[in-house]
Amino acid sequence: MSEAPDLPLWAALLVSFFIVVGALVTLIGSIGLWRLPDFYARLHAPSLGATLGTGSILIGSMICFSVLQSRPLVHEVLIALFVTITTPVTLMLLARASVYRDRIEGNPGPPEQDPEPTEL
């Protein structure tokens, strides 16, 4: 295979595990984007890749660079922070925009009125 950094075996195994798991979770999220039946159900799919997928790959990257440069390198935390704060904002905005549009156009997706609050 083409070149890859020369890490000790334990680090290589750990990094491999984290990035493959992260990529797999992201793939499942994207498959969900394709398979789920309607828009509101699809809203749940991207957050798989944005939480566990991103987190796992970033942990792999952190281990890799920390071992390579033999000092803790944690700037990947920034990406994780940005992604966990920004993805919910975009998803919420999209959900609200979509409910608004569907209600104006009278589509069957969202209920006309908010459903009755569930009481415990």
Partner: peptide
Amino acid sequence: IVMTCTPGTQWVHYDPASRVLMLH
């Protein structure tokens, strides 16, 4: 943020007057 970050629940709309949250 917590509810949208955990896949499976999606915050849609919160009405501060009646304090009712609609979620998917």
